[in-house]
């Protein structure tokens, strides 16, 4: 067992993965415990471990059973989890970034039109529907709630470089929107999506089921590695990154897109240390301090 809270639930995923679940429901403490345990595991550099994949309330380790015995690796995971405990003493060294969003953009709107029969309310845009089901009188109110508080990248994956984002607000202020009735076969690249309690940014064009709220001009996945932010990695996001959205208008979107195309655009970002304990004590105050860091960058 690993510290307070629920006992971890473990399962082998075949003979070459171990799956560990800390909670069944989404919550930031469980996610943070995942981050703390997987970061600590990575530092241990255990022979035979191939991938350590943090997710929202669970993680998995993919390993080579010819190099590390599966049951020995389970013992290593248990020991690591015991060291980390619930993670509240752990300071996560991460990155905070600001992403410009054009809410209610024409491209996701057009895509939504093409998939009318997949949607709960075909006569409203996804953004209007999301505002209504969250009790806002106007789209502007929803956009303010969506962009005023930062989001935590609780998992990166599904496809290359796609972040799942969980808003850093108390549960009663979490925005929740049902996913599409059935998935789309197409979503524009860099769509800002929302499904259930999660936000996401579609790193590549493709299938998807999240409601489409807007689009960012900022590239987050670059297999050609020709954009300045991608010199070291094809993938921008790492689990634990913190995102603050900045609403922009069409004119700014076009300007930024021109900068992206000229390979001059850089995402505004700064290194930051995140402490779950201090966040939980005063979420809004702590968030203000976090986002202040961006002003200096």
């Amino acid at each position: 067992m690993s510290g307070p809270g629920r006992p971890a639930r473990r399962s082998f995923g075949g003979d070459d993965h171990i799956f560990v679940e800390f909670d069944e429901e989404m919550n930031l403490p469980a996610n943070f415990r995942v981050m703390a345990v997987t970061a600590t595991l990575a530092e241990r550099r255990i022979d035979g471990v191939i991938d350590i994949c943090p997710a929202n309330v669970s993680y998995q380790v993919r390993f080579d059973p010819d190099r590390v015995a599966p049951r020995d690796l389970v013992a290593e995971l248990e020991a690591t989890e015991a060291t980390v405990g619930d993670g509240t003493d752990f300071d996560l060294r991460t990155t905070i970034l600001e992403l410009p969003i054009l809410y209610g953009d024409p491209w996701t709107r057009e895509t939504g039109e093409r998939f009318r029969s997949h949607r709960q309310d075909p006569d409203a845009t996804d953004l209007e529907y999301a505002a209504r089901v969250n009790g806002f009188d106007s789209v502007a109110g929803f956009v303010a709630a969506h962009s005023n508080s930062p989001w935590f990248a609780s998992m990166v994956g599904f496809v290359a470089g796609l972040p799942f984002l969980f808003q850093m607000v108390p549960r009663e202020r979490q925005l929740e929107v049902p996913k599409y009735l059935s998935p789309r076969t197409d979503t524009p690249k860099l769509t800002i999506g929302h499904g259930g309690c999660f936000g996401s940014i579609y790193s590549v064009r493709g299938a998807g089921g999240y409601q489409m709220l807007g689009i960012t001009p900022a590239p987050i996945y670059d297999p050609t590695q020709t954009h300045p932010d991608f010199a070291d990695s094809l993938v921008f996001f790492e689990p634990g990154f913190i995102v603050k959205y900045e609403p922009i208008d069409r004119e700014t979107y076009d300007e930024l897109t021109a900068q992206v195309e000229a390979r001059r655009y850089r995402i505004r970002q700064a290194p930051v240390e995140f402490s779950l304990g201090r966040f939980l004590a005063d979420p809004d105050g702590y968030n203000r301090g976090l986002t202040e860091v961006l002003r200096g960058s």
């Binding site: 995923g13 075949g14 070459d16 993965h17 799956f19 998995q60 993919r62 998992m155």
Partner: peptide, 11 residues
């Protein structure tokens, strides 16, 4: 449905 989780290869 579950809260989005990691998928093992072969799962």
């Amino acid at each position: 449905n579950i809260v989005d989780a990691p998928y093992p290869i072969g799962s």
